[in-house]
């Protein structure tokens, strides 16, 4: 084949085949670029040592009624609050229509352990740790941009959009929980 006819693409005896070669080359090239790009990006994701710490056990018996402790799970703080009967009652008396992110108190605790509230201690706005026993609603107050949560950890005021997150956890015995 003469060089000139190679350049003049339309004069090819078989343009369909030529196009196929272009497309196939580009496709293989794109796969190659993708195969290189993915590890380059994915290396930034949580590594094996971070993932290895994904669950935590905790004994609740030390948490007295009316008090709260902060423990660490996956690098983030988690509140464990042992609520008083009055706090539980207060949380349950709130009509759903008052809530920005409607959720019943019952849905946020484990049945039979209603006094224990276990929540990731990060404000759902931008992730500061709220301060306990503060704010108008008797729950938590976030110092960063003023979000307020009630005694069920539900958002009541301020820029946060959602209730404090209840992490996946289960009771291993009457007083020991496993988070994660």
């Amino acid at each position: 084949m003469a060089t000139e006819s190679n350049l003049a693409h339309n004069d090819q005896p078989n343009p369909g085949r030529r196009d196929f070669l272009y497309v196939a080359t580009a496709a293989v090239g794109a796969v190659g670029v993708g195969a290189v790009a993915w590890p380059v990006i994915n290396q930034m994701n949580p590594d094996a040592s971070v993932l290895a710490l994904a669950s935590t056990e905790f004994d609740l018996s030390g948490v007295e009624e009316g008090s709260s402790v902060t423990i660490k799970w996956r690098g983030s703080p988690v509140f464990v609050r042992h609520r008083t009967a009055a706090e539980i009652e207060e949380a349950r008396a709130v009509p759903m229509s008052d809530l920005k992110d409607p959720e019943t108190d019952e849905a946020r605790v484990k049945e039979g352990h209603d006094q224990y509230l276990v929540m990731v201690a990060l404000c759902t706005h931008l992730g500061c740790v709220p301060v306990g026993d503060a704010g108008e609603f008797g729950g938590w107050f976030c110092p960063c941009h003023g979000s307020e949560y009630d005694t069920s950890g539900r958002i009541r005021k301020g820029p946060a959009p959602k209730n404090l997150v209840v992490p996946p956890y289960q009771f291993l015995s009457d007083s020991v929980i496993q988070i994660g």
Binding site: I41, M44, N45, P46, D47, V50, R74, G75, S76, H125, L126, G127
Partner: peptide, 24 residues
Amino acid sequence: NIFAAIPVIGDPILQLLRGGFAVD
């Protein structure tokens, strides 16, 4: 955390930026 506001892909992006579940 600002990136977590992006719908759907927000959380994966957040983990990608931080390289963990929290800043560490």
